[in-house]
Every structure is written in structure tokens, then in C-alpha cells.
Design a protein around this nucleic acid. Structure first.
Length: 905
RNA sequence: GGGCGGUUAGCUCAGUUGGUAGAGCGCUUGCUUUACACGCAAGAUGUCGGCGGUUCGAGUCCGUCACCGCCCACCA
């Protein structure tokens, strides 16, 4: 006996265990050795993370694809794993140390600290995997990988070495985005621009050879800046070559205030006469644009900050060189060690007291912040490792252009091209400890040896120096995304030539959010093409963001985060999954509302109860039952409808239209199977035993089984449970490993016949509700065709039951004072003399008449239009003509009905 | 500044190649109809953001404007 109610929380865990025990999600199952492979690599969640709504959506969609393809008989590999998430994880552990008032990272030292991180990983690393299982993710967990696994680390080192040897990885001293809180370089992508209220300080730079006079403009030049503290590192002042105001000053020098260094005034196109004063200070060591200007004019790069973004002025040769006017340098040097923002204030104060500050304007501008640390990023001159992304991007761009990889929706390809075509060198070194340490060793003279391991590096060094030499390893680690970029092949065993690599690469599809197209998708394309000579995936399905019900991005700080696990507990994983799938329309964000989840929980319950109904009526799966051989019209009709649903769902999933697939399945189950098929089947099932009943029982069970299959990718738990509890006779396989429906069948005659029954019942019900009639009433077919009469006879029992009709008869015309309905062009009458309000009935018919007349008018207008008749496709014109006939007939019937009503009055 | 997306029923959103607008929720009314009240039945609600164009015909194609959102670039 199926339980009266379905309790997801009691079922889901057990079902998942059954799948795992059976190895249902294992790739390479022996019986599928010759099957077509289908593979997806999971976007690896942070190892210490926990499931949020974005994961829920992302993994639901992947699971739908994997379960669908698995049922279609493919050898599916859904490759799971987690990411070490360098910065994020290191931050978590550092915060933990601080909270527990334990020694910090630097006090612990690298080795001890890393032990702590591994311990943390061991402690919380399994959380996200457990949560993915609760969602129902059908990953092959036996193949779970971690980006810092031995194997994956080997891949990382090999990639680094090979790219280095190919000249595609190099070390360079240039400006990077420096995070003064995390004390590491970060890539352009990890910088977020934040709109900030700031100021524009206009500073007077005295001209060399003149006596500075605040009231005499010919003794100075004004520069404007939002970062006055950087002036200590100025190397020049630039003006536009065509700017008449400053032409005469080009080639002259100014004396840098507070420092006394003599710096030139140069002409450069970079200077924008419209901005600020038109003269711009050039600080090559602290501004990306100025860096370029500096190179053009051979200016010194004067770094004034330490790595903590504190002034480092003393013992700074570049800073002190060229000082020709040391008058107040001492006081400036006293600021050594000040934080950049404290220094800013102080410098402004000092400029002001000296009359060097012309004015301060309020100014809104965008300031770069670290996406993790949320502090202001400082452009900082350091040695870092870079990937020549421009070179690697070329084949990656071509592959998408040639259609080897396709984005869905296609519009994301523009985003991809736009970024790839303007790609900058990728800074991959991080001054962190948690991650893959860079395989580079330095000799005493700084000569670098990049090698797969220390021994190789030593051998190389021996050869180079002619003797054994002590080497020190580069302390930095690689950007987390460096190892993620290898994910589609590193997880399959590369650099070894494993059978898995041969079988599952390139992967079939990648499912991910648009926010990591640059971080991840683009880089996988580059690395995959370079090392595997093939794209990493055929399709890239880009889904949207999950927002809260009012459209705001979910964030902890806003407190609007909906916890998917909470929803799973409350409504079941199936309800959450179905909601996400149903709302996953391409190219649109998902605004999640709990009500919607509740609605799909109800859907699961509906399905459950339909199965209970089947069971109560002894509808059991009949092995070998062929739905196409059904004799009963009703059964042929549901076979017809099932075929339609199978087609719709299959096509929609193949097109990544998850919402359409979910919608088609939902409508079929609820509005076709439950609302009509089961209702119409009741008289048969409750009636005497006969062949029709036998067939109907088989068909009810067959359609239910097809429904379970169709819904399984969306609602794996409830369907698998129903598959099990309805398993008499026993099933050949669990649902997850059963065959996806392949069923085409059409029976237009059955469709017409059942359509007529539905229309008739609906019309009567509608009238009853409208006129507030609850009693059983007789039905009279007026001037009905023989076919209609025959139909009415065939379906009498059904009609009586569903429309609460006491008796069905035929007559030449409708009886006096009857309510008259038009069903498919014919009048059916419900004799209700004395019961109905004649005036109300007349009003109702008048309204219908008007509607019919309006329809005729509209169609006539169209058909009278010569251009329409001449230009519209024949079938459209034909359709219009049919509509006209139909409306004319309807109008006549209504008019007659009205006549008869008058007679009754 | 460059680019992308959105604007359709009270709310959240669908709408295939142009052929007289749909769903869920909510709302109204009526139902202990022996699977299901997480249910059944019936119903109401739209100048499809504005303007212009193409077309026999536009929610759908083109142009334009408005508002909302996102991405990229930008610390004078």
C-alpha cells in the first residue's frame, strides 16, 4: 500500500543511498561500455563552502541533463570535485585563528599554517558534497577530485613548466593590483570598481627658476588629483601637446612640493585638457596610465609605498634622487611608515599651509577594491608571474567562431569575444600560502630555474653554474583559477593518457553562471585547447542568477539569502528542483519565491495521489503491454497525449529549455492525466470486469510509468520512490537506470472524440456554475447529427458522472425554456423550466450572440481585404474562412436559442 | 564612455519561424464528487513601456525615446 501522504524528508536520504549502493551514477558501467559517452564537469564549489541557491540552480540543471542522458542509455560521467579556493580559504582560517586568539599566520610559519588549513579542509570539506547529495546530484562520487590532490597538482606543475618553456608564462616587473590587506597581487578580474564620494585636490607645483607666489599664476602650474599622497612619487607633469595654455611650459621643470625633486613638464596625448586643470601629475609607480606615460618619456618609477601601503620614504634611492631643493624634505621623510590615508590627510594639510593648495572640489569617482578584502587596491610595482593570455586566446576565440563550442544562449558569445579580444596578461602569482606553490627556484644570483621538481631544478642549476648550488624556491602560489582552468582534463587523469581522458574529453556540456565566464570558462577554453588540442566542452549553457523575490541579489549582508537546504527540508528537494527548472528561462534572472516552491510541492503530492489512485484501482504495470494496441478510445487518447508530452519534454531538454520541459511535463501530468484521463477512466475502473477495464488498468499504469520517467530528471526522489512502491511485478531496473520514453503515436480520431466530451462537460459545468445550479439535470441533444448521437451514447456514463447529468436524450429541437449551449457547432439543451431565470438566460445568450457577431465582423474585415487574401499564406486564409463558417453557424444557433426562449416566456 | 538584457493580468514570469495573448501564485464563487482541501469545479483582470516605421497583419521585425538592471572601461 502506498502511504497516504508523501514525506520527502523521510524518503530522500534513503533513496539516495539506494542509488549510491547500486552504483547508479558510476561512469563506465560495464553494460554501457559501447554506449555513447556523455560528460559534464561540475563547476567545483569551494571545498569549505556550503550550498547556496546558485549552487542549487547550477547543479539541478546539470543533474537534469545527466539523468536525462543516463536514461537515454548514454554512459554518463558527471565529474564532481571541489576547489581549494586559495584566498577565500586562507582568509577563513586566518579569521579562525584570530577569533581563537591563536598565533597568526606569520607567527605560525608556512608549514604550520598549511597544516591548519588542511585540518580545516578535513573538518568542513565534506559539507558541500553532502549537501549536493541532498539536492539529488547524480555525480560519480567515486571519481571526486580536489584541485590540490596529488594528481591535479602534478597537472598544474606540468602546465606551468610547459607554458614557461613555450614562453607563454614569464616573470615581469610591472604594476599589479595590490591588495594591501591580503598582501598579495590579484588579477584584474578580482578587482571591483566601487562608486565613491571623494575629492579632487588642485595642487600648485612651483616652476623651476621662479619664486613661488600663490598670487602669481606664472610661478606655478596646477595639477589636479584624487590621490594627493601619490605626489611624493611624481616623476613628471604632463600636458597635452596642443594645449595652448601650457605649450610654453613644455620642456621646463617644476619643483615637486614637499620633496624638492626637479621633475619635467612633458607633452603627452594622455593628458586631457578637459579634465582637472589640464595638467596631470605623472606617477609611474602608482598608476596604470602613468606607468605607460612614464615608459614613453623614460621617467623613473618611484615607489613610495611598502607592501602594507604605508609610506616608505627613507632609504629609498629613487625617491631621494634628483632632490635639488631639500628645504622641507626632512619633514616629509618624517612621514615614513604612515598609512596611505593618514599620509593623504597630512600631505594635504602641509600643502595648504604652504599655499600650495589651490582648491578642493567634491568628486564622485570609482575606486578599485579587492573583491575579497574590500579594501582600496593600490597599483604597486612588483615582480609577478604572468600568462601570455593574448596568445592563448587566439585559438580559444577561433574555436567559438567556428562553432566547435557553442554558448547557450548564443548572445553570451559576444561577451566572450569582447573580453577575449581585449585580454590582458594574466597575473597568476599570489603572495599566499594556500595553493599550488610555483615550481620556480632561484640561484644565488637570482637566476630562475623552472622545473617539474626540485631535483630537476638542481640539475639544471648544476649545469648552469658548473657546480652544485643551493636554490631557494619561489614562495608564491598560483591563482586558484589557474588550476580550475585545467579542470576538464586534470580531473580525467591528465597528464597521464588515461582511458577516461580518451573517453570523456571533450566534455559534452558545461553548465555555469555568467559571472564566471571570464574567470573560468574562457580560461578552460585557453588551457584545454593548448594542452588537449581540443575544446573542453561542446556546449556552454549559461544560466542566470538566483535573486530574491523582489529581484535583489542575495547576500548575507542584505539578509535576504534563501537557504536551499531550508527549502529542501520544508518542501523536499524535488519541489526546489522543479521550481528552479521551471523558472530557468534562458537569459533571465530567477526571482525565487517560496510560494512557487510550495506550488511544486503540491505537484509532487498530486503525482503521489495519482499513483495511489492507480494502486487502489489495481492498475499495475503489465509487462509487454503495447499502448498502441489499445482498443478503447479513451486509452488511445491518453497514448496520443503521452506521445505528445514525450516529444515536448525531450525536445525542450535537448534545447536546454528547462522551463519549457518542466512546463510541458507539469501540464501533461496535472491537466491531462489527472484532470481528464483518470476522471474519465473512473466509470470504467469502477465498473464491471471486462476487457475494457483490463485494458484501462494497464493503460493507467503504463502512462503513470511514462510520467515517472519523464519527471525523473526533474524530481528524482519522488519518482524513484513511486517507481519502487508501484513495482508489482518487480521492475527490471531502478528508475534512474531505466530507459527514457521513446514513444511516438498519434490518433486524431480519439483526440476529436475525447475533445468533444471535454468540451461538452466543460460547457455544462460552466453553465451550472454561472447559473448556480447544483442539482442533477437532464441533457437533450437538439437536432444532433448521427455522429453526435452515437458519441453521446458511447460516453453517456462518463458525461453523466462528470457533468452531473441525470439522463441524455435527443430531440428535433430544444425543449421550451431550456438552457441552450453550443458545443462544437451543435445545440445541447438542459431543460430547466422553472429553475432558471429567463431574463438572466436571455442576457447570457445575448452576450454570446454579440461575441459571435464580433468574431464574424473581425473575420469578414480580414477576408474583405484583398491584400490579405492575396498575400497571406493559403492555410491562414483557409483558417480564417473556417473561423467564419464556425462563427456563422454559432451565431445562427444562438439566434435560434433566443427565439425559443421568447416562445417560452 | 562602450556593450548587453528587461519593460506582457494584482504579483512572479512564459510566449517557438510575425497570423485575434498564456501559466503559477493571489483574488471571487460554489463544492465532505469514495486519489488528492498540498484538492475539485467555475470565474474576473491586459490600449503586451511611449512614439514612428515595415507588413494584408506586429507582443513578436526595424528605428527612436523613456525608465529599470547588469557587464566592461575609467582614482586628473
Amino acid at each position: 500500500m502506498i502511504d497516504k501522504t508523501y514525506q520527502p524528508s523521510e524518503v530522500e536520504g534513503r533513496i539516495y543511498e539506494t542509488w549510491e549502493r547500486a552504483g547508479a551514477f558510476r561512469a563506465g558501467r560495464p553494460e554501457r561500455a559501447s554506449a555513447e559517452p556523455y560528460s559534464i564537469v561540475i563547476p567545483p564549489p569551494n571545498v569549505t563552502g556550503s550550498l547556496h541557491m546558485g549552487h542549487a540552480l547550477n547543479n539541478t540543471l546539470q543533474d537534469i541533463l545527466c539523468r536525462f542522458e543516463r536514461m537515454r542509455g548514454k554512459d554518463v560521467l558527471w565529474q564532481p570535485g571541489t576547489d581549494h579556493a586559495g584566498i577565500a580559504t586562507q582568509m577563513v582560517v586566518e579569521r579562525q585563528l584570530m577569533e581563537r586568539q591563536e598565533p597568526g599566520r606569520r607567527d605560525l610559519g608556512r608549514e604550520k599554517f598549511l597544516e591548519r588549513v588542511w585540518a580545516w579542509k578535513a573538518e568542513s570539506g565534506g559539507t558541500i558534497v553532502k549537501q549536493l547529495k541532498r539536492l539529488g546530484a547524480s555525480c560519480d562520487w567515486s571519481r571526486e577530485r580536489f584541485t590540490m590532490d596529488e594528481g591535479l597538482s602534478r597537472a598544474v606543475v606540468k602546465v606551468f613548466v610547459e607554458l614557461y618553456r613555450a614562453g607563454l608564462i614569464y616573470k615581469d616587473k610591472r604594476l599589479v593590483n595590490w591588495d594591501p590587506k591580503l598582501l598579495t597581487a590579484i588579477s584584474d578580474l578580482e578587482v571591483v570598481q566601487v562608486e565613491t564620494k571623494g575629492h579632487l585636490w588642485h595642487i600648485r607645483y612651483p616652476l623651476e627658476g621662479k619664486t613661488f607666489d600663490p598670487n602669481d599664476q606664472s610661478t606655478f602650474i596646477v595639477v589636479a588629483t584624487t590621490r594627493p599622497e601619490t605626489m611624493l612619487g611624481d616623476a613628471a607633469v604632463a600636458v597635452h601637446p596642443d594645449d595652448e595654455r601650457y605649450k610654453h611650459l613644455v620642456g621646463k621643470n617644476v619643483i615637486l612640493p614637499l620633496v624638492g625633486r626637479t621633475i619635467p613638464i612633458v607633452a603627452d596625448d594622455y593628458s586631457d585638457p578637459e579634465k582637472g586643470s589640464g595638467a596631470v601629475k605623472i606617477t609611474p609607480a602608482h598608476d596604470f596610465n602613468d606607468f605607460e606615460v612614464g615608459k614613453r618619456h623614460n621617467l623613473p618609477q618611484i615607489n613610495i609605498f611598502s607592501i602594507e601601503a604605508k609610506l616608505s620614504l627613507k632609504d629609498n634611492d629613487a625617491f631621494l634622487s634628483g632632490v635639488t631643493n631639500p628645504a622641507d624634505l626632512e619633514e616629509t621623510l618624517a612621514m615614513h611608515g604612515l598609512d596611505r590615508f593618514v599620509a593623504r590627510k597630512k600631505i594635504v594639510e602641509r600643502l595648504e599651509t604652504k599655499g600650495l593648495l589651490e582648491k578642493i572640489e567634491p568628486q564622485n569617482h570609482v575606486v578599485p577594491h579587492g573583491d575579497r578584502s574590500n579594501v582600496v587596491i593600490e597599483p604597486f610595482l612588483t615582480d609577478q608571474w604572468y600568462v601570455n593570455a593574448k596568445e592563448l586566446a587566439k585559438p580559444a576565440i577561433a574555436a567559438v567562431r567556428e562553432g566547435k563550442t557553442t554558448f547557450v544562449p548564443k548572445s553570451w558569445e559576444n561577451t566572450y569575444f569582447n573580453w577575449m579580444e581585449n585580454i590582458q596578461p594574466w597575473c597568476i602569482s599570489r603572495q599566499l600560502w594556500w595553493g599550488h606553490q610555483i615550481p620556480a627556484w632561484y640561484g644565488p644570483d637570482g637566476k630562475v630555474f623552472v622545473a617539474l621538481n626540485e631535483d630537476d631544478a638542481k640539475t639544471e642549476a648544476h649545469e648552469h653554474y658548473g657546480k652544485p648550488t643551493e636554490l631557494t624556491r619561489d614562495e608564491d602560489v598560483l591563482d586558484t583559477w589557474f588550476s580550475s582552468a585545467l579542470w576538464p582534463f586534470s580531473t580525467l587523469g591528465w597528464p597521464d593518457e588515461t582511458p577516461e581522458l580518451a573517453r570523456y574529453y571533450p566534455t559534452s556540456a558545461l553548465v555555469t553562471g555568467f559571472d564566471i565566464i571570464f574567470f573560468w570558462v574562457a580560461r578552460m577554453m585557453m588551457m584545454g585547447l593548448h594542452f588537449m588540442k581540443e575544446v573542453p566542452f561542446h556546449d556552454v549553457y549559461i544560466h542566470a542568477l538566483v535573486r530574491d523575490a523582489s529581484g535583489a541579489k542575495m547576500s548575507k549582508s542584505k539578509g535576504n539569502v534563501i537557504d536551499p537546504l531550508h527549502l529542501i527540508e520544508q518542501y523536499g528537494a524535488d519541489a526546489l528542483r522543479f521550481t528552479l527548472a521551471a523558472m530557468a528561462a534562458q537569459g533571465r534572472d530567477i526571482k525565487l519565491s517560496t510560494q512557487r516552491v510550495e506550488g511544486y510541492r503540491n505537484f509532487a503530492t498530486k503525482l503521489w495521489n495519482a499513483a495511489r489512485f492507480a494502486e487502489m484501482n489495481a492498475c499495475a504495470t503489465q509487462p509487454g503491454f503495447d499502448p498502441k494496441s489499445a482498443k478503447e478510445t479513451l486509452n488511445r487518447w491518453i497514448a496520443h497525449e503521452t506521445a505528445k508530452a514525450v516529444r515536448e519534454v525531450t525536445e525542450a531538454i535537448l534545447a536546454y529549455k528547462f522551463n519549457e520541459a518542466a512546463g510541458a511535463a507539469y501540464r501533461f501530468v496535472w491537466n491531462i492525466y489527472c484532470d481528464w484521463y483518470l476522471e474519465l477512466a473512473k466509470p470504467v475502473l469502477l465498473g464491471a470486469d471486462n476487457p475494457a477495464k483490463k485494458e484501462t488498468r494497464a493503460m493507467v499504469a503504463w502512462a503513470r510509468d511514462e510520467i515517472l520517467k519523464l519527471l525523473h530528471p526533474f524530481m528524482p526522489f519522488v519518482t524513484e520512490e513511486l517507481w519502487a512502491v508501484t513495482s508489482a511485478p518487480p521492475r527490471d531496473a531502478m528508475l534512474a537506470l531505466s530507459n527514457w520514453p521513446v514513444f511516438s503515436f498519434a490518433d486524431e480520431r480519439a483526440e476529436t472524440e475525447i475533445g468533444w466530451v471535454i468540451d461538452l462537460v466543460t460547457a455544462i459545468r460552466s453553465m451550472r456554475a454561472e447559473m448556480n445550479i447544483t442539482a442533477q439535470i437532464p441533457l437533450v441533444l437538439a437536432a444532433a447529427s448521427d455522429e453526435t448521437k452515437a458519441r453521446a451514447e458511447r460516453w453517456a456514463e462518463f458525461i453523466k458522472r462528470l457533468a452531473r447529468v441525470s439522463d441524455i436524450s435527443a430531440a428535433a429541437s430544444a425543449p421550451q425554456g431550456a438552457v441552450q449551449l453550443i458545443v462544437r457547432g451543435e445545440v445541447v439543451a438542459l431543460p430547466l423550466k422553472g429553475v432558471i431565470d429567463l431574463a438572466a438566460e436571455r442576457a447570457r445568450l445575448d452576450k454570446e450572440l454579440a461575441r459571435a457577431e464580433a468574431d464574424i465582423k473581425r473575420v469578414d474585415a480580414k477576408l474583405a481585404n484583398e491584400k490579405f487574401v492575396a498575400n497571406a499564406p493559403e492555410e491562414i486564409v483557409e483558417e480564417e474562412k473556417e473561423k467564419r463558417e464556425e462563427a456563422l453557424g454559432r451565431k445562427a444557433k444562438i439566434a435560434e436559442a433566443l427565439e425559443r426562449l421568447k416562445g417560452a416566456a
